[in-house]
Design a protein around this nucleic acid. Structure first.
Lengths: 162, 162
DNA sequence: CAGCACTTGTCATGTTATTTCATTTCTTGT
DNA sequence: ACAAGAAATGAAATAACATGACAAGTGCTG
């Protein structure tokens, strides 16, 4: 099980998909959540894509798979996945990506390549760092954080420098 | 000149507006940028509001002020302000806010109150912290960061606890 | 098996953002 | 001063992202 903080490396994608699905399955069983076909399919599509997917792209694929064709179909499935930590929303892209560390409650941080649009997930520590300091100094109670870096991924840096 | 990292405190709002406008004015003069009426008005409106403003709310006000009524009017003005560091986009809100530290090149971080929707700006240090570490470890080249915390501001915490 | 909570499908609408092109304004080089 | 080029504006159209509301179906629970 890859628990490293980033995701630009190559890996056994098939295995990572089945693992993530199994984790979600188990989590839902444990929590009494209904991992319905449309939700399962949505997570599968996110994992398969291995990149950030817009809600309407998701909708297209769900429709192709025989599910409903109206936006709420996609948004509801994605909301479920996000709410339960199986996926994250990338605010910068208005898009969604499968969680790289499902199960673990965490504050994700993302690195977004502006060339190839790949996205890697890392952990952030809201409490530490400048933001946590500012929050403590002012009495702000942090509930959730969005941390996204835009730039160039290793592969594209190599290409650009060549 | 308030250079403290946060913005939940009371302050002389009139003075802070004129200062910010003057700073922008000077910056544009120095860089040969055209600080046109619509851009000036947009910045004034952001400063006046002292909160995050959606593009269409900005558009309404610009139209009321006699400018064009089509979305690009607002988006172009806002893009100019953001590009030149006079304003920031809050991704979480799809809204824009005047920069609290204009002139200084910086990586802003924001604290967003989910009760009263106030927004405070702090500095972040992308290079340090978990994100910078992950970037160095993988070879990701950070160009820009989005750091936004959602939670409860001091004033609303007090209210909630009462 | 009745009642309830939850999920799904669909229609309708609301919100945010961009593309395109013609026109005007400003700046620059001569 | 003036022509050429760059930048900004106005306006129309459209694209992309997201939610509200309601009826019908599903599965659990008493």
């Amino acid at each position: 099980m890859p628990s490293d903080p980033v995701g630009f490396e190559k890996h056994d994608h098939g295995a990572c998909i089945s693992e993530a699905m199994a984790t979600a399955e188990a989590h839902c069983r444990a929590k009494g959540l209904r991992f319905t076909p449309v939700r399962r399919k949505a997570l599968g599509l996110l994992l398969q894509a291995h990149r950030a997917i817009g809600a309407y792209e998701m909708l297209d694929r769900l429709r192709d798979a025989g599910f409903g064709s109206q936006p709420p179909v996609a948004y509801r499935a994605l909301d479920f996945l996000v709410a339960n930590g199986f996926a994250h929303k990338i605010e910068r892209l208005n898009a969604f990506i499968a969680c790289a560390h499902p199960g673990a409650s965490h504050s994700p941080a993302f690195m977004i390549c502006r060339i190839c649009e790949s996205v890697a997930e890392a952990h952030s520590s809201p409490a530490r760092g400048a933001l946590g300091e500012a929050a403590r100094a002012t009495g702000f109670r942090i509930e959730q954080t969005v941390v996204e870096a835009e730039g160039i991924c290793p592969a594209c840096v190599d290409k650009a420098d060549t």
